[in-house]
Design a protein around this nucleic acid. Structure first.
Lengths: 168, 168
DNA sequence: CATTATTCGGATATTGAATATCCATATTGA
DNA sequence: TCAATATGGATATTCAATATCCGAATAATG
């Protein structure tokens, strides 16, 4: 029961794109380099974010990725669903309908209590993730608060951030 | 991010063992047959439950598995931890310490806020699972409430349930 | 008390799916 | 037209699920 590793990269990427606003973005190469992860695989996650509308993309020369909507309108749950999928971790296989004492199908209209309990726990998990937005995280992630580090990031932004075609 | 499928079998097995009480049990073959699952893999789950103390075992002729403690003292979380392990679904790889703008290690004493958010969600999930006991589930699981079905189970118990050596 | 049948325990393949990685293609701005 | 860039499919690698085997322990049996 391990989460797709790409979720972490995707969340970090969103946190990095957030301060650039909706019109400025970063290329895939820059994102991969910044996070120190292989570019081809980072592409997969960005693609997933793009399909979910969390980021918008611009192709061709000087293209890249920018946040698709405000950072306060993107939750961790959104990112998890986009990258890791929405399939529940616990999937009931209707064991009660199998074996020598199987319950007949007609008596299994209501969901199995075991499945219901697990579904409840997952709902709690989703609720917690849905309550945290990228905006909540962006203030601190990847920054240690020292002026030297902030300056390093600003300098890097200056070299890598680019204007993307307006969405208008 | 899919849970080990064996968790479902293990929970069902506990629910089946619960009404037998602490002194009566079922063999591995009976458990696998009842649930309609492959015996070798069911063995793996039962061994995990055994190592966690959730069930106790008796070897030799007419041996088998019985619940290790009261059904009201076994939570879903206990079973999940035993069968699926206790590793968190989200594992922080300290991305903030990588790449051209990496934060120096000494400034990363506090956990990454992203990791903290995911850890909080997992805590909520665990809390929900820890609040449900086998006793809560045993009343209904695998039974549709019809007299015919209950009779079928009683008959099966009569043939398969066996007295295990007292824990004394 | 010795023997034997039965059952759990653990190690070890084997298969299949999910994941991580890479490469070729299409697309766009300059 | 060219160089830069995202996109999607193809490939390798890892991991979970399943099957098989043998040894150790134990209770029933004579």
């Amino acid at each position: 029961m391990k989460m797709n590793e790409g979720v972490e990269w995707a969340v970090h990427a969103c946190c990095l794109l957030a301060p650039l606003g909706p019109d400025r973005g970063l290329s895939l190469a820059a994102l991969a380099d910044y996070h120190g992860v292989p570019a081809p695989y980072m592409a997969k996650q960005m693609q997933a974010l793009s399909k979910a509308g969390i980021v918008r993309t611009s192709r061709g020369a000087r293209g890249g990725y920018a946040l698709g909507r405000g950072a306060d309108a993107i939750t961790l749950l959104d990112v998890v669903r986009a990258v890791d999928g929405a399939v529940p971790m616990f999937r009931c296989t209707e064991i009660r309908q199998r074996g020598p004492c199987a319950s007949p199908r007609k008596d299994c209209a209501a969901p199995c209590p075991i499945a219901r309990a697990f579904a409840g726990a997952e709902a709690a998990w989703r609720g917690a993730l849905g309550a945290v937005t990228i905006a909540d995280l962006v203030a601190t992630v990847g920054r240690d608060g020292t002026p030297a580090h902030l300056g390093k990031i600003m300098q890097w932004f200056g070299a890598e951030a680019r204007q993307l075609p307006s969405v208008g």
